[in-house]
């Protein structure tokens, strides 16, 4: 459909919030699983008090970043926001998708939560311990950094998705729900969630982030998508089928294992 660019009269907020909830929930669940592995390893090895202080401090920093940057992003004019957010999502989503494809094809080893847990436990056992009653800075620092690093990716997705649809609060709710679900399962299982299909989730999140990025940056630069917002599911399907084909063609003779 080639032609002269028409004047646009709609914003990205017309896109169904279901996509926003799904992408944020899945991305947050994956990151929460990884953070939980670190927190569980440090907490069970060295004690929970300092570990939970670290988790709490990271949570406060993440909440503050969301609260400060959220309104700042939503105040940017919609077209500039679409270009900025769309470009960032394409770059960020491609990273997720590229690695998920390599893992699905067996070119790169899949993440092993049990092995990651064992490494953290080994390190935690080796580190010096403080005298009783004092804050264990090792536990604090490891849990703080673990939760902060994993959480920053979630904040990024919450802010970009939420701001582009003017629904930061909804994205934040989906993220909180995902953390609650993962933590609840972690409390029941009391072990790293090794059976969660992390790569499949990352593959799905990569597809969603990249598709939204393409859609929004296209809108931002003035593309008139055929079918309007209905073209978004078509972009998702196109990327999904294309990525599946790439996985099939890239499979090596021997898979790489962790």
């Amino acid at each position: 459909m080639l032609g002269v660019r028409p004047v646009r009269d709609r914003g990205a907020e017309n896109v169904s919030p279901a996509y926003l909830i799904l992408a944020t929930f899945l991305a947050c669940a994956v990151e929460a699983v990884e953070a939980l592995t670190i927190v569980l390893a440090v907490g069970t090895t060295r004690g929970w008090r300092s570990t939970l202080y670290g988790v709490g401090a990271a949570g406060v920093v993440l909440a503050a970043v969301t609260a400060i940057l959220g309104p700042a992003l939503t105040s940017i004019p919609i077209e500039s926001l679409q270009i900025l957010v769309g470009t960032l999502l394409v770059l960020f989503g491609l990273q997720w998708l590229y690695k998920a494809i390599l893992r699905a094809a067996g070119v790169k080893a899949k993440r092993d939560e049990t092995a990651a847990y064992s490494r953290e436990v080994e390190d935690a056992e080796r580190a010096d311990r403080p005298s009783s009653g004092k804050i264990d800075w090792y536990s604090f620092t490891i849990s703080f950094k673990g939760v902060l690093l994993e959480g920053l990716e979630v904040v990024f997705i919450v802010l970009t998705f939420g701001a582009a649809q003017n629904r930061v609060w909804l994205a934040a709710l989906a993220a909180v729900a995902a953390v609650a679900v993962v933590v609840a399962i972690g409390l029941v299982v009391r072990a790293p969630l090794a059976r969660v299909p992390e790569n499949a989730l990352k593959f799905a999140v990569g597809i969603l982030l990249t598709s939204f990025g393409i859609f929004w940056v296209g809108e931002g630069v003035g593309v008139d998508w055929p079918g309007g917002d209905a073209s978004l599911p078509a972009i998702i399907a196109f990327l999904l089928l294309g990525s599946a084909a790439i996985v099939l063609t890239a499979k090596p003779d021997e898979e790489v294992t962790a």
């Binding site: 080639l2 032609g3 002269v4 660019r5 590229y98 390599l102 055929p226 790439i246 890239a250």
Partner: peptide
């Protein structure tokens, strides 16, 4: 900007880049 509604370029271009990157890594 030149008046061409190049809606097809982003999805196909990005997918092609992804295919090339994966082929290189493999």
């Amino acid at each position: 900007d030149k008046g061409v509604n190049a809606w097809w370029l982003l999805p196909t271009g990005i997918l092609a880049l992804l295919a090339i990157s994966v082929a290189r890594a493999a």
